[in-house]
Amino acid sequence: MRKHVNYIVLLVLIIIFPFLIKDNYTLTIGIFAGINSLVAMGLSLLMGYAGQVSLGQAGFYGIGAYVSAILALKFGVPVVLSAIVAALVSAFAAVLLAIPALKLKGHYLAVATLGFGEIIYIILNELGPGGPSGFGDIPQVSFMGYKMTGQISYFYLIWGIVFILIIFSYNIINSRIGRAMRAIHDTETGSSAMGVDVSALKIKIFILSAVYASIAGSFYAHYITFISPTTFSLFHSVLILTMVVIGGASNLFGAVVGAIIITVLPEALRKFEELDVLVYGLILTFSLLFIRKGIVPTLLQRLKKKGMANA
């Protein structure tokens, strides 16, 4: 029941936001927050529920953007279809990487995913259309001949996807697979002794996280209409990781809250000009020091305590 309340609150927030915010600039920040939320949710599933770290999410984000953009621009594939094909390509790449990589542990896994992300980046840089300069004139999103141009429609589209995928993810988490997933996080040996096929599960989650990042990348490409490799470098993977850790890896809503905070923060810090990097770093340091479990889990804990005290 509590969960349904969460969904409804989120849905209402999504629907009323564009009515409260009239200007395009804030709406655009909202759209970017949605894009980042999607990538962060994928990573959160991987980290919070399967106990695996990835520093290669930007690679899948890049595959989603490039494959979809190239298909739509050079081959005239309808935009939604191109994003689906891109997601399949990402899923395939995720399988190729996951089979050997998920045998690795801790730092070694981090480096393997980091290496994957860097390889994708180099491929985009060397072989992508336009090379390091990138390319533009990417078609915008269109449904059955109707071309989406308004900011509000993009806002609803990305947050609609986020909303649906949150419900989808929670269904997985609460299913039999999900319970097994949490078992992986707790102890791997234990869960395999219980008859859980740990490695197949890990691969499934890894694919899911890649697909989320890929969808976000496709959306980004068709929204901005210009892409270049720099957007998909290691820095973006680290940024996504930061979102998940700040928001709280043990909760999907944490990824969304983290993504919103990390997207809005640099915009809020614009008035600091040159000092913004420093202030940003300090805020990050302090929030990691003082909100160790992440914002959402910490808040939930507080609420629970309060609820008990009131009762």
Binding site: V277, L278, G281
Partner: peptide, 10 residues
């Protein structure tokens, strides 16, 4: 990572 950002800023 956060410290590295602060150090770069300085």
């Amino acid at each position: 990572v956060a410290v590295s950002i602060v150090l770069r800023g300085i």
